[in-house]
Design a protein around this nucleic acid. Structure first.
Lengths: 346, 346
DNA sequence: GCTTCATTTGCAATCGGTTGCGATGGAAGT
DNA sequence: ACTTCCATCGCAACCGATTGCAAATGAAGC
């Protein structure tokens, strides 16, 4: 079943009475090759069914033409968008991608990093797991001069390039919006505050409260993993709160949807009793009832930008050392779940 | 920044006064190498910071150790599950994966196939796009003896191994369930009937109707792409139907959710007026109100099985020619959206 | 002591492009 | 006529691991 041997540049060379060097150069449009010769080479290549051998090429060039992607998870709308963005750019540029996901585990993330390192990716695009504490596992990349671009979940102290949104602003605006709707006791449900995204959003929340002279009540900040389970737990805790809160800022649409659903099941009216703002603008935010006010976080753009910067660096067009942090646009989308029309006196 | 040159087996060989051949064998636990020697080699490898060079290895072995994955889309719960399943098995087996998605376009699918072919994947796992009409673009793989495993969206006539669920049974059971709930006029919203999955589900639907002596009304079958748009369109068409239908089988949870929401917005009560059954058991099915009755389609299992079969074939443990079609378990999960408790007389 | 055989290890070719450097030939310059 | 200079192309050494085959070593058997 595998009778036909692969044709190589040597076959083409023999066929055309040329040297393999000329064929190689002809195939990659080298300027020192005569136009007619190039044409002949490319025609012959097609005729003979030649396909380029990446391994031989990579071996010689000492480059893998592959970039690694590390994600904490890939089953969210946001993450698939990022992936789509990255894929678009990388395939255009002729790079392969290897995807590794950590399932939010630091250990797995470290293992993945090592694996990608051994696979010799030319560059790395990464978002940190929920509980990643340090960046030691990226050391080998830095040592070897392999560029790493972080997105979304980043480590602020790190020297690497980062693609993010202004999480502080988003948190501030979300909270501000809830306050404008008349909310006085606003719950914030968030992930691990070690992670920059959640820390920044939380800071925005705090600053908005302060600017509106609303006292900060520590017990209103709930730290959860942002899973289905987490959403349900948050709802149960909210229900137990002495005076019921009148607003909630939940930093993940899926979790917000679950939370909202649970609250409704217990007789809480949304937004009348509690106004809710989510985060990410996942598809679910438009399906849930009432539709979820949320922060649009354009995953495609994030992916494209991260990939483009990395590739430009690899091609020597730009240098990542010069562009430390890239902030992508994001915006608050106001929908029903947060609009207290009649602003009841309470 | 890249001062340290990579250490190779030659470095190890020189370091230990051995030949590169011995080192190579020692590193891969070849039986003809003395145990002590092996230990020394492996220790030295660690000391010197050796990392295996896949390119040299692949070049020599004429295998890429990579399998290609073609998906029609990857932003659904089901698809990410499949991917997770595939990834689990492939990484365990030490294979890399290259992911390509067609965005439901036949042209893109063909282009991806060609690309993966040039990348010389050892094997392929694929689900066809919405409007793929033929399998010509898989010919090169067959010609070269590269195994291809299809899943979910498959071409039934093809010779390749397929991993699927019993779509006919699922369609039958879903419809049967609706009938048992007292439904007489059941809408079916489905994708392109050229695709096996939808064709089979449709056949199940038809057979259930026939077995229950319910006349088939062609106008009740709506062909839609299963997007948000499609869900909304389906709802609008349902609303226009002369006697309103009393049941709906929608072959995709997301689409079903959108459809249900739209119907509710127009005053239709679910399930009292129309009972609804979805498909896939995506996370959204539990969040939507009422919770969606759906068919559990275990993506992880599908992915694992497809990957395992492919890899076993590649390793020569089994032969794909012998296992043509693998049917994975699936089951109807009955939830609120289809339970007409009080069975009104109509 | 000599042959036999198993255990270990080394030799050297091979996989297929890539690339620095030199060679060739003819046109152009003086 | 002779040197200079391009434009093209070829030589041959890499890149790093794999593997068939041969060689070396030593133990065991007669």
């Amino acid at each position: 079943m595998k009778p036909k041997k692969e044709t190589t540049i040597y076959d083409i060379a023999a066929y055309l009475n040329l040297s393999s060097a000329t064929v190689s150069r002809g195939l990659q449009d080298h300027p020192a090759i005569n136009k007619n010769t190039k044409k002949k080479i490319q025609t012959a290549a097609k005729e003979l069914g030649y396909r380029h051998n990446n391994f031989a090429s990579n071996l010689r060039k000492q480059k893998t033409n592959t970039i690694g992607i590390m994600m904490h998870e890939l089953n969210s709308n946001f993450m698939s968008s990022v992936l789509a963005g990255i894929e678009k750019i990388t395939t255009e540029a002729g790079y392969d991608i290897i995807i590794a996901h950590s399932s939010e585990s630091y250990e797995k993330e470290a293992a993945n990093a090592l694996n990608l390192f051994h696979k010799r990716v030319d560059g790395l695009i990464a978002s940190l797991s929920f509980n990643t504490k340090n960046l030691e596992h990226f050391e080998p990349f830095n040592d070897k001069g392999i560029p790493v671009v972080f997105f979304d979940r980043v480590e602020e102290k790190s020297e690497n390039t980062k693609v993010i949104i202004d999480n502080h602003k988003c948190g501030y605006e979300a909270t501000q919006h809830l306050i404008q709707q008349g909310c006085k006791r606003i719950v914030m449900v968030t992930g691990n505050l070690q992670r920059n995204v959640y820390a920044q959003r939380n800071k925005g929340y705090l600053d908005a409260l302060r600017d509106n002279h609303i006292p900060y009540d520590k017990s209103l900040v709930l730290i959860k993993d942002l899973s289905e389970q987490g959403g349900r737990e948050a709802a149960m805790e909210i229900l137990k709160m002495k005076p019921l809160p009148d607003g909630a800022f939940i930093t993940n649409d899926f979790s917000a949807a679950v939370c909202m659903k649970t609250l409704k099941e217990h007789g809480v009216r949304i937004p009348e009793d509690i106004a809710i703002v989510g985060f990410n603008n996942d598809a679910i935010s438009k399906i849930v009832e009432p539709q979820l006010t949320t922060v649009h976080y354009p995953g495609i753009d994030v992916g494209e930008i991260a990939a483009r910067n990395l590739i430009n660096h690899l091609k020597g067009i730009s240098n990542l050392k010069h562009t430390q942090t890239i902030v992508v646009r994001s915006e608050l989308l106001i929908r029903k779940s947060s609009l207290k029309k009649g602003n009841k006196k309470n």
